[in-house]
Simulated assay, not measured.
Amino acid sequence: MTNLISVIVPVYNAEQYLERCINSIANQTYRNLEIILINDGSSDSSKTICNSFATNDTRITVVNQQNGGSSIARNTGLEIAKGDFISFIDSDDYIEPIMLEKMLNLLLENNLEVVEIERNSAENNVVFDDSFKIENSITATKRIINTTSFQVWKRLYKRSIVENMRFIPNIIHQDVFFTIDVINKVNSIGFLNSPLYQYNRESIGIIRSNYSEMKRDIAIRATEYIKSNIADDIELNKVVNNYIVGYYTDHYFLLSRNTNFDQNGNYRKKLRTSILKSLNVSNVSLRSFMVIVLPRKVIEFISVSYKAVKSKQP
């Protein structure tokens, strides 16, 4: 085991899940790890938990810093990581014992720079067949956009790919920008269809918090970044158009029931224009059709009424 894997874990007020996360990393079948815990200004017992683990495991490094968000915490980890390979894990999640060994072996055996795995699914009908394939960058991009698999913790990276990259501070959907940039740096990605990453759906993070101006602005910024930074390929452009129609339609309805974030309707006008440009017979839905044909005030009424009905349901 000559290859060192640096595992970067941003930690913020994660005391409820943190021990489970760290244990899952420390107990990996692959032992040559550098575990970097970035305590991002936690106000709970997270710092104490991190220090306790570091006392008993020399592979663990704890960095304490003022709260700056997960982007800055990950950047801190990248700046000090010494590993030949880099992994990111979120502190409220955990990983299967074989995950890092499996990913590293596939990466080395196939001379790859990035290997991706799946996370556990909330749906019982999802089939994981444990198959492995090597995708070229266009095929990988299509799959990632189709399944919105931008999360950086799904991948193991060769150091040379990410050592000079940094996450954008103070934004959500930071993974979108990072993952698109990674794809543009590699010729192929290994994809293992196995749920080795256990994603925590109980924790309420900023992505799942209430709608906000930041969510509105970054949704548009991230989508425009995808469209502007992908390869010029007919089939890939179709996938992006499908993504735009679905994603912008969702945000149009969110703004329609949160009108304080779009009082003059300018954002919805921008979204509607982009939907129109991307719409075709294969990706149109009832909701996207409503956005195109119905007046803004009508959709506001529908959205607010729907929200009221849902709130009364047990």
Rank of each mutant, 00 (worst) to 15 (best):
K185F: 04
I161N: 07
I292L: 13
I60M: 14
Y157F: 15
N241H: 07
I49Y: 10
D250Y: 15
R257Y: 13
D40M: 09
A219P: 03
T58W: 01
D92G: 02
E109P: 02
N187W: 00
Y12Q: 11
F132E: 02
D92C: 07
L286T: 14
I80G: 08
E118W: 02
R272W: 05
Y12T: 06
F85S: 05
L279N: 05
K270M: 11
E101W: 01
G68N: 13
L254S: 12
N260L: 11
L192R: 03
S6A: 09
F85W: 07
Y248M: 03
F132P: 09
N193W: 03
I161L: 11
S71T: 10
A222T: 01
R201M: 13
K238Y: 08
L18V: 05
I302L: 15
I230N: 06
Y225W: 02
I36K: 09
G190W: 03
R272D: 09
T2R: 11
V281K: 14
V239E: 14
L255P: 09
K154L: 15
R296A: 10
S278T: 02
K47N: 12
M1E: 11
S6P: 09
N39D: 15
S87E: 14
I218H: 01
A140L: 00
I89G: 01
T2N: 15
F167T: 04
V7K: 04
N51K: 15
V281W: 11
I22E: 04
D44W: 11
I302Q: 06
E34D: 14
I220F: 14
I226G: 04
F289M: 11
I8W: 10
Q65K: 15
R287L: 14
K158E: 13
L236W: 04
L4W: 05
M165S: 06
R268L: 09
R257P: 03
I226L: 05
G77P: 13
V298G: 06
Y12G: 04
I95N: 00
V245W: 05
K82P: 05
R74P: 08
L100N: 01
Y247E: 08
C21S: 06
Q313E: 12
